[in-house]
């Protein structure tokens, strides 16, 4: 039973993160332009090593966001090693990020109220 419970909560939090991965990537790009591995690293760092973004998810998300014109890619001018592909937020992307952030906050408040069991005051 216990392992089943653990599995469920793992998948719930995994699904929650996956469902918001585009916004999380937009958030990383708000500060500055990044290339792929830097995004993975930034997300790992911000989650205190608790969440590691998988590369297939990263590429799928970047491609989706670029198609929606939320981000733009450009090749860096590194002289050593291969050239890196950087991503920059567009104005549209910044707007989308703010919208998604607001949507997340209101959903979170609502879910908080619905999901937390309170002995007193629960009807």
């Amino acid at each position: 039973m216990e392992t089943g419970g653990e599995f469920l909560s793992d998948s719930v939090s995994g699904d929650l993160i996956r469902g918001n991965i585009d916004t999380i990537i937009l958030c990383v790009l708000m500060a500055q332009d990044h290339y792929g591995y830097e995004i993975i690293k930034a997300i790992r760092h911000r989650s205190d090593d608790e969440y590691e973004l998988k590369e297939p998810t990263l590429y799928a998300s970047l491609r989706r966001l670029e198609k929606q014109k939320m981000i733009q890619s450009y090749w860096g001018d590194e002289t050593q090693g291969g050239r890196r592909k950087y991503y920059r937020l567009t104005e549209q992307g910044k707007v989308l990020y703010q919208q998604n952030l607001l949507a997340w906050k209101s959903a979170r408040n609502l879910i908080d109220r619905l999901i937390a069991y309170q002995e007193e005051g629960t009807e």
């Binding site: 591995y37 993975i40 291969g82």
Partner: peptide, 11 residues
């Protein structure tokens, strides 16, 4: 391919 390569190298 180029993007995957530099990202793997960075990792």
């Amino acid at each position: 391919r180029d993007e995957v390569l530099v990202n793997l190298q960075a990792r």
